[in-house]
């Protein structure tokens, strides 16, 4: 019998297509959107319009990266607005308008994100509570706490000037905020692809039981996912505060749904394990472009909510798991299902 050498011939391309299929729809959709936009609302693509939009797109992308890490562990995080609001108020409150205190303020903000993430992670990863309800609750607590803290501290106050002027800088003609987000995305993508930590993180998300049986520390990875997500939300809050300069009661509120929408339409598997940082970044771009286009076409913000909701639903129906499953089914010979005896063993073992 001859050896079967894996080659990247035609068969290799087919296999790579299966891998890519999950993330393909968002790239196609973004391209299509750009073309449609160029035809019906060319203003949306103009650089003046982008100068305004890119920072917001980046903030969405950073928050979505955090959400993506949680989704990779088959979870969901609804504490984003709480963390972002409290984080924003800390920047104003601790920073107290003084550039010298900016570093302390940013550290406080990131520590808050990490702390909330740790609480979420322990409740979900160790006590095995349901991620939806836990993060809803912690999000609510943090948000209310932030509101309490903000009274008197924040009203009329601005973030330290150094932060807002940094956010206005445009190295190479594009916003510094944008570069930060792009670097973060690249960093997450590289860590997931090129490090042992990233590989184990994916494995634990894809199948925690198999990961445990292969000798991995499952709980640690899950806790880490929520902590990292919290830190990324806090970073998003820093960027948003820099762009907005001041904090209003609705600060961060729109980041409950949008990051989830971005992750979902970027093709992440809600069953855990698979997601792409670059696709998530692109999805944030696409959602922003869509919003921008609708705005230029004169549609109200109300319409944007509807389009958002539809994008989540359509994204779930056409991308990610389904595309991968469909292509997989077409391209591989199906197998016999495992026998009931095996199922019985599982229930006995858990």
């Amino acid at each position: 019998m001859s050896a079967f050498t894996p080659t990247v011939g035609r068969a290799g391309l087919v296999a790579n297509a299966i891998v890519a299929a999950r993330f393909l729809p968002i790239w196609i959709a973004t391209g299509a959107l750009a073309i449609v936009s160029a035809i019906i609302a060319p203003d949306a693509l103009q650089s003046t319009s982008w100068a305004f939009v890119l920072p917001y797109m980046t903030i969405l992308a950073v928050a979505a990266l955090g959400q993506m890490l949680v989704v990779m562990q088959a979870g969901i995080d609804l504490s984003t607005p709480g963390v972002m609001f409290f984080g924003g108020t800390l920047l104003v409150g601790v920073g107290a308008g003084s550039n010298g205190r900016l570093a302390g303020a940013v550290i406080a903000c990131l520590a808050l994100g990490a702390g909330v993430g740790l609480a979420n992670g322990v409740l979900i990863g160790v006590l095995r509570l349901n991620p939806l309800i836990v993060t809803l609750a912690t999000g609510q607590i943090v948000l209310a706490w932030g509101v309490k803290y903000s009274r008197g501290v924040v009203e009329g106050g601005n973030v330290p000037e150094a932060l807002s002027s940094w956010a206005e800088r445009k190295p190479l003609g594009i916003s510094a905020v944008f570069w930060t987000g792009a670097a973060l995305t690249l960093l997450v993508a590289l860590v997931l692809r090129y490090t042992a930590v990233g590989r184990r993180f994916q494995a634990v998300g894809a199948n925690p039981r198999a990961a445990w049986m292969a000798g991995m520390h499952v709980r640690t990875h899950v806790v880490f996912a929520y902590v990292a997500a919290g830190v990324l939300y806090a970073l998003a809050a820093v960027l948003l505060a820099g762009v907005r300069i001041s904090i209003d009661p609705a600060f961060g509120a729109e980041y409950l749904l949008a990051p989830i929408a971005a992750v979902v339409i970027a093709g992440a598997s809600l069953a855990g394990g698979l997601a792409s940082a670059t696709s998530t970044w692109l999805a944030a771009l696409a959602l922003t472009l869509l919003t921008q286009m609708l705005r230029i076409l004169g549609l109200s913000t109300a319409m944007q909510f509807i389009v958002f909701g539809a994008a989540i639903l359509v994204g779930m129906l056409v991308s990610g798991d389904r595309v991968a499953a469909l292509l997989g089914r077409v391209l591989r010979p199906a197998e016999a299902p495992s026998r009931p005896a095996a199922a019985q063993t599982n229930t006995g073992a858990t």
Binding site: G75, V126, L127, R128, L129, T138, R219
Partner: peptide
Amino acid sequence: GVLILLALVLYQAPELLARLRTSWGGVGRL
């Protein structure tokens, strides 16, 4: 918020203890 978390823990305290004791603790997943 605090009440929800307390209720989650309190109402299923026996299961939570069992989860902590079993070797396969598992993690919260949707």
